[in-house]
C-alpha cells in the first residue's frame, strides 16, 4: 500500500465513522434523557424509523435538508407522543408499548415506502458539507472530522448542552428526581407526569433527528428497516454511559468506527464476512463489562409508571 492510499483510506474511514456515529449519538442522548426521568424507552427504534421516513419525505419533496431534519424530528415526536400518553400518563407497561411501537413503525414505514418509492427508489443529492477553515487543512484528521454537514457539529455541541442541562439547571435536577424518587419530586410541587412527558418527547425529537440524518445524509435514501437496530444500540449506549452525555459520544464513536470499518472492508474487497467486524464493538463492550463491570447506576424508578399515592 502506498502512503497516499492509506492516508486517503484512513480519513475516509474516519469520515464514515463520524457519519455512522451521529444517529447513534442522537439516539443514545435521547434514550439517556428518558431513562434519567425513569422511562425505559424501547420504542426508540420506532421513533428513529418514523424520523427517517418523514425526514426523507420532507427533504425529498421540499428539496431542503433542514426541512427534512425538522419533519424527521416531528415524526419522532409524534411517536413519542403516543408513548408519553400510554406509558407516562396512564402508566401502561413500557416494554409492551415500546416493542409494539417499534414493530408498528417498522411495518408502517416499510408499507408507505412500498407504495410511494419502491418503483423509483429516489435518492437525495449528497449533503453540503460545512468546511471549517484551517482545521480542515490538517492532513487525515481535517477531511475526516471537519468537512461534515452543519448538523454534525450541532449534534456534538448538543452533548455539552445536555451535560450543562443535567448539571446546572432546575429542569435537569427535576429529570433526575423523576427517575430516582418521583414521589419526592411530587412532594416538592413539581408535576412528575409533566417532567417525564418532556423527557419522552425530547427523546422522540432526538431519535427522529437521528433517523432523518441516517436517511438523508448517511444513506441519501429511505429503505425499509433502515435503522437496523440503531435504536437498540442507543439503549445500550445510554445504559453504559451511566447518565453522562460525553460517554454516549465516546461510545457512539467506537461503534461508528466499527460500522465504518465494515463498509471499508467491503470496498477494499477484503474477504471476511462483515458479521465478524460487526461483532467487534459488542465484544469490546462485553469484555469491558466483564473486567470493570460494577453495579449499573440506573435510576431507581426506571420502568415504573408513577401514580400518586401508591408505593
Amino acid at each position: 500500500m502506498t502512503g497516499l492510499f492509506s492516508e486517503v483510506f484512513l480519513s475516509a474511514l474516519m469520515f464514515g465513522a463520524v457519519t455512522a456515529a451521529i444517529p447513534l449519538l442522537l439516539a443514545g442522548l435521547g434514550e439517556q434523557m428518558s431513562e434519567k426521568a425513569g422511562v425505559l424507552n424501547i420504542g426508540i427504534e420506532g421513533m428513529m424509523l418514523a424520523g427517517a421516513y418523514l425526514g426523507f419525505v420532507g427533504a425529498f419533496y421540499s428539496g431542503s435538508l433542514w426541512l427534512g431534519f425538522f419533519t424527521g424530528a416531528a415524526g419522532g415526536v409524534a411517536v413519542a407522543l403516543i408513548m408519553a400518553l400510554l406509558c407516562v400518563r396512564i402508566g401502561l407497561n413500557q416494554i409492551v408499548i415500546g416493542i409494539a411501537l417499534t414493530l408498528g413503525l417498522e411495518g408502517l414505514t416499510a408499507l408507505l415506502h412500498h407504495f410511494q418509492f419502491s418503483r423509483s427508489y429516489p435518492r437525495l443529492p449528497a449533503a453540503d458539507a460545512t468546511v471549517i477553515p484551517l482545521l480542515s487543512d490538517i492532513p487525515v484528521i481535517g477531511p475526516a472530522f471537519f468537512k461534515h454537514h452543519l448538523i454534525v457539529y450541532l449534534a456534538v455541541g448538543l452533548v455539552f448542552g445536555v451535560g450543562y442541562l443535567y448539571r446546572h439547571t432546575q429542569l435537569g435536577l427535576n429529570l433526575q428526581a423523576a427517575g430516582d424518587k418521583p414521589a419526592a419530586l411530587d412532594v416538592a410541587g413539581i408535576d412528575v407526569i409533566k417532567t417525564r412527558t418532556i423527557a419522552v418527547l425530547t427523546t422522540g425529537a432526538l431519535a427522529g433527528l437521528g433517523g432523518a440524518y441516517l436517511a438523508n445524509v448517511g444513506a441519501g435514501l429511505f429503505i425499509p428497516f433502515i435503522s437496523n437496530g440503531a435504536g437498540f444500540l442507543g439503549i445500550v449506549l445510554a445504559m453504559l454511559a451511566r447518565g453522562r452525555p460525553v460517554w454516549v459520544l465516546f461510545g457512539a464513536l467506537l461503534f461508528g468506527v466499527c460500522l465504518s470499518l465494515t463498509t471499508a472492508m467491503q470496498v477494499a474487497g477484503i474477504n471476511i464476512p462483515t458479521d465478524v467486524i460487526q461483532m467487534l464493538p459488542f465484544l469490546a463492550v462485553m469484555i469491558m463489562l466483564v473486567l470493570f463491570g460494577r453495579r449499573a447506576s440506573l435510576p431507581a424508578a426506571l420502568g415504573i409508571p408513577y401514580e400518586r399515592g401508591t408505593r
Binding site: 400510554l86 401502561l92 407497561n93 409492551v96 408499548i97 416493542i99 409494539a100 411501537l101 414493530l103 408498528g104 413503525l105 417498522e106 411495518g107 408502517l108 416499510a110 408499507l111 412500498h114 425499509p224
Partner: peptide, 15 residues
C-alpha cells in the same frame, strides 16, 4: 410488512 402493523395495533389495544 402490514402484518407487523396489525400485530402492533392488536398489542396496544389489548394493553
Amino acid at each position: 410488512h402490514f402484518t407487523l402493523v396489525l400485530i402492533s395495533i392488536v398489542l396496544i389495544v389489548l394493553a
